[in-house]
Write a protein that binds this DNA or RNA. Structure first.
Lengths: 209, 209
DNA sequence: GTCTATAGGCCGATAGAC
DNA sequence: GTCTATCGGCCTATAGAC
């Protein structure tokens, strides 16, 4: 146990990059306990000794991977310009993109592995929350406050409104996807679910329909 | 790998009961991979051989434990009578009890372990969903339909309304608890969060405030 | 830096006595 | 049914040659 926060820096050599890619893929797909260092080395095309020369231990490799993936998440989270139409029309495309992002296998895998190992790696749970849910919530809070100032909605507590908007989007469909139950939602299903969520949100918060 | 659905029956001897209790506690708290059969045997006060005599393998013990805990969940899920006042007043106590149930360490542990091992044990993910979220959703759907018939709310799609109600309750507070971040919510915080969710739900669906 | 080869330990599962 | 003792394997991590 020595999970520190270094090694997230430049991926010097090509082998190091291969190790990082292989480890990310495997850890996010199968979780921490189910992935052996042998498997990482094999997939990266290097020997185990090389792997240990670059990252000192399994937990350090895991921490480096997940921390890095959490930072990537921040860039990938879809955002959106202000748009001019109704509140619903402005929010729907953003909602569809965000829900689609959430339901991608990589996002689901990240969520699963962080939930599973959050107790053993508290700093990873924090990093995930900061760069994922919290960053999205903060951005949406600002956006909703701006729209409220323009009279498009009534939100005395924009942070609460943002919470509830994201909670509505993260509904039964996300729960089932998280558990790996039922069919993988396609684009149409995602759009339908997002529209239902935004419709309800606008009915609760919209100044006008 | 031979996770079948038997062994959920009568816990014949006292040792068998001790094994079940120990395994439930350990698996739900620490997850599948982090718990060794030695640890289960030690905590149950029996030898490993006894453990293997009762349950043939680790995955079978795990499946038996979680499946049984999923069935228990159904009985523990708080329900509620019809009540006579406003929609908000009728829903709030139910919401508080349900959110409190969701935030208990045992519920969170169950959720974490099923999310983590859902890929390896699909039948457990199904059982969890059936007896937990799906059962609650079905009951709430019926309840909302009944209230709609009485004119207390407008819900053309009661199942969708139930989804969204539960999604609103399962908001940022539940996400943080799931990740083990921040302080454990106390009763007051739970009541506040539940009230905010039900208030928004009623604003979107209520016939009258 | 990178490899092959291996040490050392823990874990799941079993043999055999009682 | 229950125990003690142990096997065989996989896993993390390292030694030593190149």
């Amino acid at each position: 146990m020595s999970a520190s926060a270094e090694a997230t820096a430049a991926p010097a050599s090509a082998k190091a990059r291969a190790i990082l890619d292989a480890a990310a893929e495997l850890f996010i797909t199968h979780g921490y306990g189910a992935v052996s260092m042998d498997a990482v080395a094999k997939r990266a095309g290097v020997s185990k000794a090389t792997l240990y020369a670059h990252f000192g231990a399994k937990d350090r490799l895991f921490a480096a991977i997940i921390q890095s993936a959490c930072l990537d998440m921040r860039g990938e989270t879809p955002e959106m310009g202000p748009a001019g139409g109704s509140l619903f029309d402005a929010m729907l495309p953003m909602a569809i993109r965000w829900l689609g992002f959430l339901l991608r296998e990589r996002s689901l895998g990240m969520y699963r592995v962080v939930v599973a190992e959050g107790a053993r790696f508290p700093e990873l749970a924090m990093a995930f929350h900061e760069n994922g849910p919290r960053a999205t919530r903060q951005w949406l809070t600002g956006w909703l406050a701006a729209q409220a100032a323009r009279g498009l909605l009534q939100a005395p507590d924009p942070a609460l409104a943002a919470d509830q908007c994201l909670a509505l989007l993260r509904s039964e469909m996300f729960l089932q996807a998280t558990l790996g139950i039922g069919p993988v939602p396609n684009e149409a299903a995602i759009a339908t679910s997002a529209a239902a969520a935004i419709r309800t949100f606008c009915r609760a918060y919209g100044a006008a329909d």
